[in-house]
């Protein structure tokens, strides 16, 4: 009987949730947003900004956790289409898994926008709009900063983001594109940091220092959080200032490190800007300004933030 009681309580809970949901004003257009990396710290300000931009435009935005799983996202999107949302914002877990989802979206005729990570090349020509950064360009900016800092003969280590993700793959691609032009620069090691976890980054950096000692002259990290973990290892080994570093993100963590001189620069990837562009993109599609197959790109800015221009860009990150 207790089980019955428990489940009745559950049901009451569900219904009361609905009561809250239905109390909101009608009229507004409804948009559904499946965020594959809902729980990542990067997405906290992204979600918040998306909500704010939606509210400004009289849009009722629902954000769900895509659990980094294309299968989960496909189910969510099918249900959302069935529920009759006016628009969908899709943050893909990975490019390969997006094929069926993009096809489903196209067939349904619903207005949608892709944000942050690109979809698979086989369906890329069918999408209306993508809002996000140019990760390859971000890598190039970091690569140029590296050459500017350490000259044409140097030894470099990299700490990359989670393997297989669009940012990790393409930031490294852009970075190596620049570095490969200088035969004197050697990449000693480049390892993925699982889950972009600072603690793992710290351990890998400790082991880099053991392995290469003071040979390391430059560190490239794919995220300010990763840099922040690695910096603890650098500081403990007394190498602060000896290892120059460039990161990506330029969020509060990165900006603090730039100000303290631990980090030379960080390439901006603004979660706030991305959240805002995502909502603006889906509005443009709902209004009919952009059609499927237009392949518009609402590009996030990616300047290099250093001590010189930090005042200008502070607060753009999170």
């Amino acid at each position: 009987m207790k089980k019955l009681l428990a489940l009745i309580l559950t049901s009451i809970l569900i219904v009361s949730c609905f009561a809250v949901a239905s109390a909101e004003a009608p009229a507004a257009r409804k948009v559904f947003f499946t965020n594959a990396f809902f729980t990542a710290p990067f997405c906290a300000p992204l979600n918040a900004q998306a909500m704010a931009t939606a509210a400004e435009n009289n849009i009722e935005l629902t954000i769900v956790d895509g659990q980094a799983d294309a299968s989960v996202q496909l189910d969510q999107i099918k249900t959302a289409i069935d529920q009759g949302y006016d628009g969908i914002i899709y943050f893909p877990a990975d490019a390969a898994g997006s094929i069926t989802i993009v096809n489903t979206l196209n067939e349904s005729g619903i207005a949608y926008a892709i944000i942050d990570s690109k979809v698979d090349a086989s369906v890329a020509e069918t999408i209306p709009v993508f809002a996000g950064p140019d990760n390859v360009e971000m890598g190039r900016v970091a690569g140029r900063a590296c050459v500017e800092q350490i000259g044409e003969n140097a030894k470099v280590v990299c700490l990359m983001g989670s393997a297989g993700t669009d940012p990790a793959t393409n930031r490294q691609k852009g970075f190596e594109e620049i570095i490969s032009q200088y035969p004197g620069i050697e990449i000693l090691a480049a390892q993925n940091v699982d889950g972009w976890d600072p603690a793992i980054a710290m351990s890998i950096m400790q082991d880099y220092i053991t392995r290469f000692g003071d040979e390391i002259e430059f560190l490239f990290t794919h995220d300010d959080g990763i840099f922040q973990g690695a910096q603890q290892a650098i500081a403990a080994a007394g190498l602060t200032g000896k290892i120059k570093a460039v990161s990506t993100g330029a969020n509060n963590v990165g900006v603090a490190a730039i100000k303290s001189g631990e980090l030379y620069g960080s390439v901006l990837h603004s979660a706030k800007e991305e959240g805002q562009l995502g909502v603006e993109a889906v509005i443009a599609v709902m209004d009919g300004e952009i059609k499927n197959g237009d392949q518009e790109w609402f590009k996030c800015m990616s300047p290099l933030v250093t001590l010189e221009n930090v005042a200008e860009w502070e607060g753009w990150g999170w």
Partner: peptide
Amino acid sequence: MRLSSGNTLFGGD
């Protein structure tokens, strides 16, 4: 077949 792709992360839960 359903997702037209293979991914190590599928079925994590």
